[in-house]
């Protein structure tokens, strides 16, 4: 099922700056990810995992090499074309939640639907349903300041999932949460992967979080150091 791959990085490099101060964050990455996989990307800081995540999330383009998403060469796309790719196929969850302040949970979840041009009725219904799926029924009209960290991350997940994306990109989704809440968030993400077949790419540096994934890719110094599949997570 992973052939043809949903995502394929071939000889991807990324260099920041120019001349003597140039810094090569990625030194040639080859990576193929199939539909429905749950991949954890690990590695020490500076290993290039965030850079790889930005490229995978179509937020950035490789300096060299190619990135095919569903056979489309992302490195050849314009800024706006990549935005449309994100809009229609990708969902993002960040370490810092990144919700709009002074904006209710419902409005936060509606945001991607506004950009997709859904009308108000459909938007409300979909956003409510997404909030229900993350267990936040009854919290629709609370602003982030009135929610706990775990709840905020649930809102963020609902926002990412409300569009039913192909791929969920989670950048240290549990980095700001305690162990118990982290587990709950991971259970949620795992369930989306398992029940709805959504491909999940997750950056983390915690082994017990990575353990939820079916495949762990370890970055070291701008290269893929190891890539192995593990048995069904507990």
């Amino acid at each position: 099922m992973s052939d043809p791959a949903l995502i394929r990085l071939s000889a991807v490099t990324k260099t920041y700056g120019q001349g003597p101060s140039a810094f090569q964050a990625l030194k040639g990455i080859d990576l193929a990810i199939g539909q429905g996989e749950f991949v954890a990307i690990m590695g020490p800081s500076g290993s290039g995992k965030s850079t790889a995540m930005n490229i995978l999330g179509c937020l950035d383009v490789p300096t060299d090499g190619s990135y095919e998403f569903q056979g489309v060469h992302v490195e050849r796309l314009q800024r706006d074309e990549r935005a449309l790719l994100r809009r229609h196929f990708l969902g993002f969850v960040f370490q810092g939640f990144n919700l709009l302040a002074r904006t209710t949970a419902l409005e936060n979840v509606e945001l991607p639907l506004i950009y997709r041009g859904h009308d108000a009725g459909a938007r409300h219904a979909a956003a409510r349903e997404a909030l229900r799926q993350v267990g936040l029924q009854g919290w629709e009209h609370h602003t982030p300041a009135e929610l706990s960290g775990g709840q905020q991350q649930r809102v963020a997940i609902a926002r990412a999932m409300v569009t039913s994306p192909l791929v969920l990109l989670a950048d240290e989704p549990t980095g700001n949460l305690d162990t118990k809440t982290s587990r709950e968030i991971m259970d949620l993400i795992t369930s989306f992967n398992r029940d709805r077949g959504i491909t999940v790419l997750m950056v983390t540096h915690e082994p017990d979080i990575a353990a939820f994934a079916g495949r762990v890719v370890r970055f070291v110094d701008g290269r893929v150091d190891s890539d192995h599949r593990q048995g069904e997570a507990a």
Binding site: A83, L84, L85, R87, F92, N98, L100, A101, L111
Partner: peptide
């Protein structure tokens, strides 16, 4: 700035 970042990440076009 962060809000703009969120919007752009979610898929807002430059012109939007």
């Amino acid at each position: 700035t962060r809000e703009i970042g969120i919007r752009l990440a979610i898929g807002a076009l430059e012109r939007e």
